[in-house]
Nucleic acid binder design. Structure first.
Lengths: 155, 155
DNA sequence: TATAGGACCTCTAGTCACCAGAGGTTCAAG
DNA sequence: CTTGAACCTCTGGTGACTAGAGGTCCTATA
């Protein structure tokens, strides 16, 4: 058919995105449903490849799928001014910076724990003590109201 | 009944963990099922409160529930040596450090993008260009094989 | 002691961003 | 024409919860 058509596996190889994920992107509307062969297999054109690459890059920058959707909409209107993009990137930057500072504090706490640990029996273990005791709360844990931020950081 | 018994709401207030989460911890076996009133409501003792606090602290340090389970088992055997704890903490420290370095590279990329951005129309936007183009791949994105590490960083 | 309303109960389904596997069909190289 | 790799759909699972519906219980006050 049309110039350069790719199977879903070709797309996967070219973008580094798994076949199952490409199908998933279709079900959630990030990728449009492509034409099919007579035997019901997907055939993509160059446009789909570019779009998927765009998505891959945006995801690698850590944008949520919601943000990616937004970016795609913006990219589809080349004559519009691009303030929204600026805002999206700035927002993402703030998120990343907050995460870094939370994790940095956490790292210091953990390394402190490790270094004051001399390896006796559990009864005298400073780490277990710290976990049992309120006086050595990790950063961000305000005793009443564990921050969602740090609680999910471990993922 | 027994000295100091708490409702599930009391436990929540004392630990900062939500009621729904406490029930969830029970279904997954992190918290033992407590005795009930005649009207089928949960009543906890001091031991349960301590255990839940321990869990809250460990989670705040970013340990996975699997790791928390492990820590609880260890804490229950006070006469054993505590090498395993050391390993668990060290492992967690490495995870956190890796995450920090990934995010730091990401932050630099994002801030670079923001600073070379002069705010014209979308057609000439450097950010959209970067997302469309392979030559400006974000850190960790190896073009063929997006690292799972960075792809999930956006959470 | 009656009652109001907050706290509790169970159960289901949703979140995010996919991934794995079962069971079956199609495509393309030799 | 055969073979086997790649494709198809559908279901269910991941981690760590959270929200809400629809109903029951507990307790402080009048």
């Amino acid at each position: 058919m049309v110039p350069s058509d790719y199977s879903i596996g070709d797309l996967a190889r070219h973008t580094g995105i798994k076949v199952a994920t490409i199908r998933y992107y279709e079900t959630v509307g990030l990728m449009p449903p492509p034409p099919r062969t007579e035997g019901n297999q997907r055939r993509y054109g160059k446009g789909a490849l570019d779009r998927l690459n765009f998505i891959a890059h945006a995801r690698a920058f850590g944008f949520s799928m919601e943000a990616v959707r937004h970016l795609l909409t913006i990219a589809a209107h080349p004559e519009q001014p691009c303030e929204d993009i600026d805002a999206l990137v700035a927002e993402r930057l703030v998120e990343v910076e907050m995460k870094i500072s939370g994790l940095t504090r956490l790292r210091d706490e953990l390394s402190d724990l490790l270094h004051t640990h001399d390896g006796g029996v559990v009864r005298e273990c400073r780490i277990i003590e710290a976990l049992s005791d309120h006086s050595a709360c990790p950063p961000g844990h305000k005793h009443h109201g564990l921050t969602a931020e740090l609680a999910t950081v471990g993922k």
